[in-house]
Design a protein around this nucleic acid. Structure first.
Lengths: 250, 250
DNA sequence: CGGGAATTTGACTAGCATCAAGTGACGTGG
DNA sequence: CCACGTCACTTGATGCTAGTCAAATTCCCG
């Protein structure tokens, strides 16, 4: 049942930057919404349900498993890691979210967040009240379609790594995906900073941290990568693509 | 962009069973839609975009990877397996869909099916034109919410098996999930027929078929299960639950 | 009854996890 | 400025889980 008591967002609103109806450039919804050509009143509706929150510092939690769900959020800056704790309390990393990507979509059905979200560095978010957004989506087909697309996309993403792949293939796929996602956001695809720890990468890929370390070392010895601490440079994208091909199928 | 050319469904409509505005009982949408208390005209709208298709025989494809997407479908009877072929042509099973469950949700964003769907036995479907459904969802908040819920749920389902679990844990979790899903649909949770081959189960769980066979044998020797060919009886649900607990976290 | 596919079983092996120890970067406090 | 402690990461040695290969068995279906 749609919650009729749509209360005012409780975060830290940030002052508008001049044009009252302009969204931050990294807001994942801005393009879809603005491209629709709706009039000012609709844009105003959309604007009131957006709030810029942050900064979150490294280690700050954005939400925790079991928290009541009321908003999804687009990452504006930084990296967010989502994870759950399994029965034995061990962490299981579900994903990393870069600027432009949306967190919280898996919380809709249960009305609670099914996982934890933590900032890996300094994180800024655009938060959207989901009940308000759903209401608005009823009037804005473009927004509704955008939400359906985001949700649908995440189903596919979640099963990319479901296959039985070697450590090399998984790590290569991880690096290639990261590279592409950075490129999409206008960052260099060849030089990047890994904001997540080796243990997080390992965990996400279902490998031991030692294995990640060894594979990176080997790829470096083969001249495919240059890795220095958390800075990574891709030297032979084609080799990486070939390895990742089994996973990414493209 | 919403497709403006909503053409008449092309499948095999099945005659109404008396009440023109009654949906088949296994139709996953019926409850959500009928519970809303909308008037007849809205129900009529909803009704025209549903078509009962089938039967599909074992091995028949419902859709294939790359097919243009235009409809999602609820399984009415039988079991559907979804899979992709990896770079080397090897199959990777993504999921099994029982009566009441919905296929095609991962196809929305690309407007093409990203995987294949095949009938494992005799399958009947309720097919819903997605463009029409989305339009209608704009007028029916309950329907929209239901769609969001289905999509959101699938994101979570896709990552259940993403962890690093032992063969025993994964297989136990598979059996427990199957049991629960059967129970939800009114079937016995303790006796079930596995409609999928061992190789499919193995593939889905990222195990070798031999491993599935061995684990089943051991569980049988321990008196946890009774397995005869594709008929399975759960004798010690608690043992199974304990094993599955690491995966399912409940 | 016979052919073929699915499944089971056994023997062996490979890949990755685990355990243990070492290295390097960074921050703190003397 | 340097000694120290901490933490993340790396490296090496070893073990185990599950995969692979091969073959037997069972079931299905004509």
């Amino acid at each position: 049942m749609q919650d009729p008591t749509l209360k005012v967002p409780t975060g830290t609103p940030i002052a508008d930057d001049g044009d009252a109806y302009t969204f931050c450039s990294t807001c994942a919804f801005s393009a879809a919404c603005l491209a629709e050509g709706y009039d000012k009143s609709v844009l105003r509706d959309l604007h009131v349900l957006v709030e810029h929150v942050g900064p979150f510092r490294e280690g700050d939690h954005i939400f925790r498993e079991g928290d009541p769900f009321n908003a999804i959020a687009a990452v504006r800056a930084g990296t967010v890691k989502t994870y759950v704790n399994d029965a034995s309390g061990r962490e299981q990393v579900l994903g990393f979210f870069l600027p432009g990507e949306v967190i919280g979509l898996n919380a809709i059905h249960a009305a609670r967040y099914p996982c934890n979200a933590v900032a890996l560095d300094t994180v800024m978010l655009c938060r959207f009240s989901f009940p308000m957004m759903a209401t608005l989506a009823g009037r804005m087909p473009g927004l509704q379609r955008h939400l359906f697309n985001l949700l649908s996309q995440d189903i596919g993403k979640a099963s990319v790594l479901s296959g039985n792949f070697t450590a090399d293939e998984r790590l290569a796929a991880f690096i290639v995906m990261l590279s592409r996602r950075f490129a999409e956001r206008g960052f260099s695809p060849w030089r990047m900073r890994l904001t997540m720890a080796r243990t997080d990468i390992a965990n996400y890929l279902r490998l031991a941290p030692e294995t990640v370390s060894r594979v990176l070392r080997r790829l470096q010895d083969e001249g495919v990568l240059r890795v220095d601490r958390r800075d990574m440079e891709i030297l032979k994208p084609d080799v990486l693509d070939a390895l990742a091909h089994h996973v990414l199928r493209d």
